[in-house]
Each structure stands twice: as structure tokens, then as C-alpha cells.
Design a protein around this nucleic acid. Structure first.
Lengths: 195, 195
DNA sequence: CATTATTTCGAACGTTCGTTCTAACAATTC
DNA sequence: GAATTGTTAGAACGAACGTTCGAAATAATG
């Protein structure tokens, strides 16, 4: 009866189906521009039926943010599996993956939508901040313990600012030369890991 | 009769009054969350009366974007008044002003709101891109002609990415050490202007 | 002071939206 | 195959929204 209680495979699949559809609608029309009817159509079910899986529209938004946060955390945690002697090189090497992810039209649009929503939805803001604190600390530990760097707060903040700024950049300049920017970014990352 | 036609001082003052009120409401509740009634209340006038100065709600946000774009352009153009021999030093020096502006709660919130709206409003997106192209070219000229630098596209892109990423950073980490970040940013700017 | 023009208001309208509800349908159990 | 449980659809509701409109208030003009 309680939408959040049931965790059977079927229910989880249906919830994912709704989240996928909602994400598409939110990217196209924004959280408040996309209606439940449109989401239901995209998910191939009736509008009313969605309420069997989510309490309300806000719950859908929160679930999407949770999912994105988990993906982000997982990606960050994957750096911990890299051997210490390869880490610096690998961080530079994976710059283009970071550029690709953060300039992907769908992904960056969803990210910006979440950011905008966080400005007036304290629940979302808290999720974002908790996720940021988690990934930030993890990355700081990586730099300090595996690379023996000091002053890791500033270094991490700088890297997060750079990659976080990419979605805005690609929106304001769609013709942006990603390859060129990646090359520059690699140099900056090298500098951040070296100085 | 036509809202956009009249340009008397009184009309311009009223329009500005509405834009100020709308900006506050949009920051607090978002473009689609803030109602005309709320905007009217903030502007100390009736909801219906706003339609004597703006054709509709979309025209208000377009006007706000135009105003912000003009401010941004003006700020960028102010660099052209700096003598060539002081320019490099001044660009580094003004980093903290850039950090302050881009981490100001109201200003960065409004910026992010505009960014989010641009994702699904082609008019807004076009304004943002035109403004970006204008300021980007101006800054590129500054670096190439006054400082004799090559490869200015990449350098400018990198700087714009950094400062553009600040509003997101401050949202995800409100406790961010701005002074520390400014110090790091200065180093990066020095590197960008030197390499 | 009379009149014309302009500014202002707030009630009213038509839509749209999130949400609820009822009843039909499908699946499972005994 | 009857009963029960879970699943689906779509009509219906109240609230909120952007917008319009006619009249009241104010200012300007003669």
C-alpha cells in the first residue's frame, strides 16, 4: 500500500521505468514544466497509476536526484581501486571521460535541472550537499593518502569547479572545442597534482 | 498601448520596478514557481497592471536575461580600458571580484535560474549564446592583441569554465573557503596567461 | 470646473495541473 | 472456478495559474 515499502523486482522495475520517463520529460520541459500526464505517456502507463509507486511528483524528483547522486558517488569511488603508482597518470588520462560526461547533452541538462531545483527545494539541496561532501572527502583522501599531497581541499575544490562548470560552458557555447579543452584541462590537472 | 513601444522615464522606471521584483521572486521560487500575483505583490502593484508594461510572463524573464547580459558585457568590456602593461597583473588581481560576484547568493541563484530556463527556451538560449560569443571574442582579443598570446580560444574557455562553475560549487558546498579558492584561482590564471 | 486621457485595480475566465477515486481487468490462490 | 489480491485506466475534482477586462481612481488638458 505504501509506495516506498514494496521492493519486489516488479515494483523496482516499474519505479525505474517511471524514473527513466520522468528524467526525459524533466530534461525536455523542466521539473515544473513537465506534467504528470506527459510523464505517464512517456512511461506507457496512466497518470493516476504513477501514484502507486511514488507518493507525489516531488518524490519522483527526489528519487531521480538520489539515483544521479549514487551514480556520481560510484564513479568517484572507482578511483580508489587504482594502484597508487598509476593514480596521477590515470587522473590525467580520465579527463576526457569527465569532459564527455559533463558535456553530454542529456546528462548535463539533467544536472543543471537538479541544480536549479536545489535552489528552492531544501531536501534536494541537502542531498546535493551530502553527496558533494562525501565525494569531496573521498577525493581529498585519495590525493593526500595515495599521492601524499598537502592542501588537498583547495586542489579538489579547483578540480570540482572545473568539471562542474562544463555543463554551463557547453550550454553557452555549443560549438566548444571539446578536444582542445580536454588538452588544456589535462595540463591544469597535472599542475594541480604537482605544485 | 504597446508595452514595448513606450519609453518615457515613468514607463522605464515602472518596468525596472517590475524586473527587480520579478528577479527576487524568480530567485526565491524559480521562473515557473513564482506566480504573477506574487511578483505583483513584490512590485507593489496589481497583477493585471503588469501587463501594461510586459506582454506576458515570458517577456519579463527575457528582459531580465537582457539586463543581466548587459551587465555581464559591460563588466567584460571594462578590461579594455586597462593599459597593456598592467593587464596581466590586473586580471590576476581581479580574481577575487570574480569569485565574489559568482558566489553571491542572489546573483548566482539568478544565473543558475537563467541557465536552467535556457535549456528549454530557445529565445533565452540564443541570448545567452550571443552574449557568450560577444564576451568570449572580446576577451580573446584582449589576450591576443594586448598580451600577444597564442591559442587564446583554449585559455579563455578555461577561465570562463572556472568562473562559470563557481555558482554550482557554492551551492554544493556552501562552506567553501572562498579566500583559499581565490588564491588557487589566481595561480591558475597566472599559469593560463603564461604558458 | 468639465473633459479627456492615463493609470490602477481586482474580480472573473478559461486552462492546466497534481492528485484522488472508482471500477474494470489480470493474476494468483485455494 | 470462485475468491482474493494486485494492477491498470481514465474520468473527475479542487486548486492555482496566466491572462483579460471593465470600471474606478487619478492626472492632464482646455
Amino acid at each position: 500500500m505504501n509506495p516506498s515499502g514494496n521492493t519486489s523486482p516488479r515494483t523496482r522495475a516499474r519505479r525505474a521505468q517511471i524514473l527513466d520517463a520522468a528524467a526525459i520529460c524533466f530534461v525536455e520541459q523542466g521539473f515544473h514544466g513537465a506534467g504528470m500526464a506527459r510523464i505517464a505517456e512517456q512511461a506507457n502507463m496512466s497518470a493516476g497509476h504513477i501514484y502507486h509507486y511514488f507518493e507525489n511528483k516531488d518524490a519522483i524528483i527526489e528519487a531521480i536526484v538520489d539515483r544521479e547522486a549514487d551514480i556520481h558517488t560510484e564513479k568517484m569511488m572507482s578511483f580508489h581501486d587504482i594502484p597508487r603508482e598509476e593514480l596521477a597518470h590515470e587522473l590525467v588520462e580520465r579527463a576526457d571521460e569527465g569532459v564527455r560526461t559533463n558535456t553530454d547533452p542529456f546528462q548535463s541538462a539533467l544536472n543543471l535541472e537538479i541544480i536549479a531545483e536545489a535552489q528552492r527545494n531544501p531536501h534536494i539541496a541537502e542531498k546535493l550537499r551530502a553527496n558533494d561532501a562525501e565525494t569531496r572527502k573521498a577525493f581529498q583522501n585519495l590525493l593526500s593518502e595515495k599521492l601524499g599531497l598537502s592542501d588537498v581541499e583547495g586542489r579538489v575544490e579547483l578540480m570540482f569547479t572545473l568539471f562542474g562548470g562544463l555543463p554551463i560552458r557547453i550550454l553557452r557555447n555549443p560549438d566548444l572545442d571539446r578536444e582542445g579543452l580536454t588538452r588544456y584541462l589535462r595540463q591544469v590537472i597535472r599542475a594541480i597534482l604537482a605544485e
